[in-house]
Design a protein around this nucleic acid. Structure first.
Lengths: 199, 199
DNA sequence: TTTTAATGTAATCGT
DNA sequence: ACGATTACATTAAT
């Protein structure tokens, strides 16, 4: 049995209530998008290819992306590689695939399928940090939440990680800290308000 | 199936080659900031309370949490909202509960149960969408699987739900769609393989 | 058991 | 670098 399924080492703050405007590919949400209009409307908006950054972890030749732990992204990562290829031969394959699924999915489903494919094509496989890696990172973070390139490189070497991953980790960690501060502040204000009401 | 999932403890080096870090010699910015010195020094501060995930469905005054659907988590949700309370009186309650379950679970299971208890304290009561709510959501999803904040708010108002629930629902829906795509893709590959074998 | 709401967080994008 | 938002992996309730 999978003994200790301890996925997240830290149980810190969560970040529900994320409400802000601007979904990424959805910029074109006109205010005329009432539910009724949506329900009674076929939509043709789409596209927004969005330029493609460098994705070194994707093999250009449709090879598998290995995960060391049999991660499930493998099959999908293998589909295609780079945004430009979207309009190359892979595009045909996908079209074909779409046609084959035609009888199972509606037109709009195919549209969003296409969008989804193009979005997450080439997304870096999610890194699963080890507990010990997290511990080290947290220790460093406690001392310095803005490590310079030298510390990051050192960490990368010691933890056998990309320096990029380190940087992203610190970014996300800072965001998390900020969130928790915001929330505790919110609660403090709320509590003060409440107790003021009570007395 | 969750039983096949690995503990995800490893995956340390799922990354491919590092980016050729140059000099490990520190740039003498703050040369005393080596990892060893950081890790070796006493961590006395431990600020970073990692507090308050903002759980509005938990009442701060230990009142009952309404569930709209008579959810059983009420007792648990109402317990606490603050990390320190984990070591306060609630801990006793949990111990008691653990003792009661003693005959049903192994020691290691109890351990993980304990860990998980402290985990999902404060977890939002599971929302049970009605059929009609689902229908509307599905209809919108068919047209647009990435509704912007405006559509989400409108949906929330019309369906009498939190906007958060809407957002989460769409997230999970997208994941589900992707899963099904993955599966059909797998089947397609399998079929192709099989028919290639047959001819 | 299966499905799916909820959670935490790594990765992505725009500014 | 930050903020917002997403995908992804997982947990837990039904």
């Amino acid at each position: 049995m999978a003994s200790t399924s301890l996925p997240s080492a830290n149980t810190a703050a969560s970040q529900n209530c994320q409400k802000a405007s601007g979904s990424m590919e959805n910029k074109a949400t006109h205010s005329s998008f009432s539910i009724e209009s949506i329900l009674g409307l076929e939509q043709k908006d789409e596209g927004i290819p969005a330029a493609k950054p460098h994705r070194p972890w994707i093999d250009t030749c449709n090879n598998l992306v290995l995960g060391e732990d049999g991660n499930p992204q493998t099959q999908l990562s293998a589909i295609s590689c780079e945004r430009p290829l979207l309009h190359a031969n892979n595009y045909l394959m996908q079209q074909e695939r779409l046609l084959k699924c035609e009888k199972y999915f509606s037109v709009t489903e195919k549209v969003s399928y296409k969008r989804e494919l193009s979005w997450y094509r080439g997304r870096r496989p999610r890194t699963a940090f080890t507990r010990s890696q997290i511990e080290v990172l947290e220790s460093v973070f406690r001392v310095n939440s803005y490590p310079g390139i030298d510390v990051r490189e050192e960490l990368a070497h010691k933890l056998d990680l990309d320096e990029d991953r380190i940087q992203i980790w610190f970014q996300n960690r800072r965001a998390k800290l900020k969130r928790s501060h915001r929330e505790s502040q919110f609660l403090m204000v709320k509590n003060t308000f409440t107790s003021n009401l009570l007395e």
